[in-house]
Design a protein around this nucleic acid. Structure first.
Lengths: 310, 310
DNA sequence: CATGCCCATGCAAAAACCGCATCGTTTGAT
DNA sequence: ATCAAACGATGCGGTTTTTGCATGGGCATG
């Protein structure tokens, strides 16, 4: 035997009984509201008072009144019960995918055009889905997907992990970024041959392997050979060099939203027409309930607007 | 038999079990922390999940992990449990009188000096006692005390209700309020005879019965007869008339804190020396737990400072 | 493949809870 | 003053819920 009960904790049932009694100021009616008879309700309240060590209701057999402590506890009890309901609701919404958080990895380039569009979509179609954005290069995203640090990645192919499901979300053209005064600006459209033996700001083989390999392949197929004057991995740094007159650059058309002064863009005809691809990838076994809603968002975003030239 | 339970409400016990399990990520240790064995804890969590309709913990027999919904619910559960503890604490503090609210009635005149002193005392000695202040004349206070609208009144005698306990909290002298240029300002102290056959702003017999009757009695005993030029019940209004040169006024020395321009004060010798009394009164059966602490405050305030003259 | 760890489940005992009947007190009417 | 009605407290037996023990079954490790 333990002697005095050392369970100094009440239960929600007791709070509900107390609130009913405090609001009705009548044990019989309160019991009816709780779908029970009066004696058990009396006991629940006695128990609550005993646990608190405080008299909450002053009951003379003719009238029930709140004590000062009871008045305070009534407010607290109501707050707790409200919180209880909202907690259940919020949790169910998370589980149903109606609300939730998606950790999203994205490459710097995808942040220029696709990501803003995605955020707009979210604001109108799934405002309760939070997005935790983390910029990282494609290879980092693969690691983060595997360890679960991000739910979805927006990254460049190739993605050959069998654990992943992928979906192409952007396919866009290359455009040429040319400094003010470059004679090629006279043309409405260019081909890769226009860059043969001409200075070109190039992608780094390590930090931007996707673009580097793609351009290398495209030029080789076309039989043209640009003069690589510099190798970078950040597109906005490349445009800064273009502006300084170091050379031209070939960038995804989404980069046109960067608006550098004295840097103008011209479409470049390539084969295939839209060689720049961006994929969404996620672990097939990701159980984040918000994932389906988020993927719907991606699907709605498929209709790609054709960006105008400057 | 009721078939499916339609009780879509969880209990605090379940929250406590869930929090323990979510923190330990191990049912056995969590159960130990809850002072029970593992099977009941498992069931409490199953019950909670069933009630919410949401899986909170992912349990493969080798590891326990929170689901996204479980992460959210853990935060909510912790908040609820914190709230329950603080609610119990706050309620116990109220019941013990350590904290609480006192509804206090006071007369306009007592607000000039005694009440500010009392509020200072409270700030330093009982900061957790809230005071709801309500200005009302003495007769209103009696009614409010009887109906429980105020816990304590600061009012003028006589108080002859048997339901009340009273305590004198202020005994002060009368001072004369004289307009600039009044010849009596040449004297350092006055007597009531100095007001014989001279214009005096008087207290109304209804709105300020206490002062009216007191002055009437004092003058009668002294054999002096002032010329009552006006009858008011608010002391600050009387001082305004004094300033306008309508006549002198006799006010409790606490009113000296009102500081009207061109109105100066002189002590008045009376018999008894300090005829103006203020009492605290409360229902003897008042059960407000904060009352004893509040009354202690009143007792500490008994040492009345002697106000300087201007 | 054997072993250990760990959560789920079956089951009987214990505890908690509920409803019914009844008591004691208070209030208001006669 | 007396009586009846209203109301919350309490005693008690039956039912539901919870608990602990024993055990099952999945999964990782060696």
């Amino acid at each position: 035997m333990t002697g005095a009960s050392f369970w100094s904790q009440f239960e929600l049932r007791q709070l509900r009984c107390f609130v009913a009694a405090a609001e009705e100021l009548h044990f019989g009616r309160a019991a009816a509201r709780m779908n029970m008879t009066q004696p058990p309700l009396s006991r629940q309240i006695q128990l609550l008072e005993h646990v608190l060590g405080v008299k909450l209701l002053d009951r003379t057999s003719r009238a029930v009144k709140l004590t000062p402590a009871g008045r305070v506890f009534l407010l607290e009890a109501r707050r707790i019960l409200r919180l209880t309901e909202s907690a259940a609701l919020a949790t169910r919404r998370i589980a149903s995918g109606e609300a939730g958080t998606i950790s999203l990895g994205f490459t710097a380039a995808s942040g220029y055009s696709f990501l803003p569009r995605l955020l707009l979509q979210r604001a109108s179609h799934a405002p309760n889905i939070d997005m935790a954005l983390k910029e990282m290069v494609s290879s980092e995203q693969v690691d983060s997907l595997l360890t679960g640090r991000i739910d979805v990645g927006l990254l460049r192919p190739p993605i050959d992990r069998s654990e992943f499901t992928t979906r192409r979300v952007v396919r866009e053209r290359l455009v040429a970024a040319l400094p003010f005064g470059d004679p090629r600006l006279a043309e409405a459209a260019l081909t890769l041959k226009d860059f043969d033996r001409s200075p070109l700001v190039m992608y780094a083989a390590d930090g931007a392997r996707y673009f580097h390999d793609m351009l290398t392949g495209l030029f080789e197929a076309e039989g043209a050979t640009p003069i690589a004057v510099q190798s970078l991995s950040q597109i906005h740094s490349m445009l800064a060099l273009v502006r300084a007159g170091i050379g031209a650059a070939l960038v995804p058309e989404a980069a046109m939203s960067l608006h550098f002064d004295d840097v103008h863009f011209r479409p470049v005809t390539t084969m295939p027409t839209a060689p720049v691809e961006l994929y969404a990838a996620w672990r097939s076994d990701n159980d984040n309930p918000a994932l389906p809603a988020f993927l719907d968002l991606l699907r709605q975003d498929e209709t790609e607007p054709v960006a105008p030239h400057d």
